[in-house]
Design a protein around this nucleic acid. Structure first.
Lengths: 236, 236
DNA sequence: CCTCGTATAATTGTATACAATCATACGAGG
DNA sequence: CCTCGTATGATTGTATACAATTATACGAGG
């Protein structure tokens, strides 16, 4: 085994830069900052008790993750996600998640399948109790398992790239027990197709799963959320 | 028009950091550095006549672009692309380019279509003369036009993300007149489908275009290239 | 009252100094 | 001869100082 095979999280959590990166990432995803809000290097640095250097490096990374936009010599701004962006993301993801499910069918390990079964089982329990926080967490994890199981670091990278975007929206929209249950049932079907070794079916089910998630999102007020945000940012 | 709508290249070309970023990017893509070679902050800085600060920031960005891997407190290493990675990339791209062609059919502007026609026409000329450098350039540009025409910054972002990876391989493999001509003919067909407003056909043709490019690559020595690289890196 | 240029302040861009961490060499001990 | 610990050097991580750029305020001139 050569040294470059060592698996390594893209961003180190234990350096100051890593901490700044993750903190800002979470804050943006959780809506602490308004869209288009300006982030100042010194302010962020003071809040976290670090100098500008690690903050700047974290900014560069957040920019490539698509969470902020840096205008040279001017400043860093939280990016806005439009309604169309969300739609595009789900269309793209529906294709990639399908491919991911196909590849996962061919490469999933025993351990991954077991974690998946546990995930679906637990989610069923929490759905019946209406524990939305746990359901969201398990939903995330289900997809992460799928990404890992597809055995393609390229596809995994692409899908995880979307994660940041998707989380920003989904956190607001999946707080809905009906879809939570339906979503988990779809997870179960995808899992069964993978277990049965039926790649075509797994691909199709994962594809539909994304489309359904998007359509549900539209029905349950994606539009209203964006109207609200727009109104907010216009009053500033 | 609000200020955040201003289009802005992700990485500024005119700051020192931007110059370092683009220089390293080109060098890696052109194979100046071996895979898994270590990049030292001071060395790079001295070569380009800048301090470590902009170099470090460029490193962080290159890491997220997937061109280098940074191991904390240790160093930055040029990432390796395996034969499987290349295959995965082309499979993923075949889906996304298909979707891109579909959306381009619906959103392409008159100007973009004109540039596309010019591109195909010029490429035909250069193909007949065997001008490989120009063909490669026009090939790149054709796909860029397609990305821009799809009118989705999300899809454009994803596809351009791959560009870096793809260029590393393609530069070595497309130097082949037969495929150059065939590739351009496929471009022409995609363009005609878009022009005719036939999204289904455009999607299918773009999808096949990628698969063909990959299969051609495999036939014409992708394997040998990787054998050579592996041998090289093992002797270090 | 409006326009424009200049001065000033605020902010980012870069260089450098220092701290922390990691790799290597070397020698003591077995 | 081998193993392990320590010392030394090399490299990355962070803080700070300074330069360059941009935004703002204010006043002269029309």
């Amino acid at each position: 085994m050569s040294s470059y095979d060592v698996k390594q999280e893209v961003t180190d959590k234990y350096s100051l830069r890593g901490r700044v990166f993750h903190k800002l990432r979470d804050d943006i995803l959780n809506g602490k900052y308004e869209e288009h809000e300006e982030l100042k290097e010194v302010t962020i640095g003071e809040e976290l008790g670090v100098s500008r250097t690690p903050v700047r490096e974290a900014f560069r990374q957040l920019e490539l993750e698509g969470l902020i936009q840096i205008i040279p010599n001017k400043g860093a701004y939280v990016t806005g996600i439009t309604e169309k962006d969300v739609k595009d993301i789900y269309m793209i993801r529906s294709l990639l998640e399908g491919l991911c499910a196909r590849w996962a069918t061919e490469h999933i390990t025993k351990e991954q399948l077991e974690e998946m079964e546990e995930n679906v089982y637990l989610a069923k329990f929490h759905a019946s109790k209406g524990h939305m926080e746990q359901i969201a967490e398990l939903d995330n994890r289900f997809h992460e398992i799928l990404y890992e199981a597809c055995n393609s670091k390229m596809l995994e990278h692409q899908l995880k790239d979307f994660h940041a975007y998707v989380l920003r929206v989904r956190r607001k929209t999946l707080a809905n027990q009906v879809r939570g249950t339906a979503s988990n049932e779809e997870h179960e079907k995808i899992m069964e197709a993978i277990k049965a070794g039926n790649a075509d079916s797994a691909e199709e089910l994962a594809h539909r799963h994304m489309i359904n998630a998007y359509e549900n999102m539209v029905k349950n007020g994606l539009h209203e959320i964006y109207e609200k945000n727009k109104a907010l940012s216009e009053t500033q």
